[in-house]
């Protein structure tokens, strides 16, 4: 198999000088795909994603984007390389308007970003309606749309979402998943950490089940959903 577009290859590491949280963990995603990281609480799902994004030290193993080794780059430099990241919490500028949030997303761009903003508004029509409102006044689901929209403003080559549906109602969750599929259809590879394992695996092209910082199961979303052990351990039967 050829090298995936973005891969965190056999990563071992932890926060600061603390103990290792990840052990030989591998996560990869290809264009047009949605890759989902699932697993029980404390399995290191978010940590794995942060490792890929450079927010903690990867002691062994490497992170490669489009064949280039980016293991030593800071998160900021990775954004410039084309990685878009949506943190789980505090992922919008609450006191800025929706439009200003998007502008700040495009801060590193020196060219005209009007078109990208129009695309984001096409993707999330509600944001266009509320573009002059402070982002902090929006509902949970709308805030997540702002957060994803902000990350899309750099025209990233890969989009990473850390629990995009945390704390939103099931209806809003379905809608968010629909949007995420739409983003993936534009060709942007999506790497996502999800608490709602079943729904996430349903839309996933590739699934990673992590347990205690190790790859426990890997496969397509359908395979994992069909896997007896995965079902029993993580999906509640």
């Amino acid at each position: 198999m050829s090298e995936p577009f973005l891969i965190g290859d056999t990563m071992t590491g932890g926060y600061g000088k603390g103990p290792d949280i990840l052990h030989d963990c591998t996560i990869a995603v290809n264009p047009g795909e949605i890759a989902v990281i699932v697993g029980p609480n404390g399995a290191g799902k978010s940590t794995a994603m942060k490792a890929v994004f450079g927010m903690l030290e990867v002691r062994t193993g490497s992170v490669r984007l489009d064949g280039e080794d980016i293991t030593s780059l800071s998160p900021q430099d990775r954004v410039i390389k084309g990685m878009g990241f949506v943190p789980q919490v505090r992922n919008i500028f609450t006191s800025l308007t929706v439009e200003e949030n998007l502008e700040m997303g495009a801060f590193i761009r020196k060219d005209d970003f009007k078109d990208t903003m129009a695309q984001v508004y096409d993707l999330f029509p509600i944001l266009k309606e509320k573009r002059l409102q402070a982002a902090g006044e929006l509902s949970g689901g709308q805030r997540q749309q702002v957060a994803v929209g902000r990350a899309l403003m750099t025209q990233p080559k890969v989009l990473m979402l850390d629990e995009p549906t945390a704390g939103v109602s099931p209806i809003v969750m379905d809608e968010l998943f629909d949007r995420i599929i739409e983003v993936a259809r534009t060709g942007i590879p999506i790497l996502m950490v999800e608490q709602n394992a079943r729904q996430a695996l349903e839309i996933a092209d590739k699934g990673y089940v992590l347990v205690q910082g190790r790859n426990a199961h890997t496969g397509t979303g359908k395979e994992l959903l069909a896997d007896e052990e995965v079902r029993r351990s993580f999906l509640g039967g």
Partner: peptide, 22 residues
């Protein structure tokens, strides 16, 4: 202004401002 907005963004959410390349 762009600089002014980036100042407000930085004041609002420093981590996200850094992620945005401010």
């Amino acid at each position: 202004t762009r600089t002014g907005k980036s100042m407000r963004a930085f004041s609002d959410n420093e981590d996200l401002a850094l992620l945005s390349g401010i």
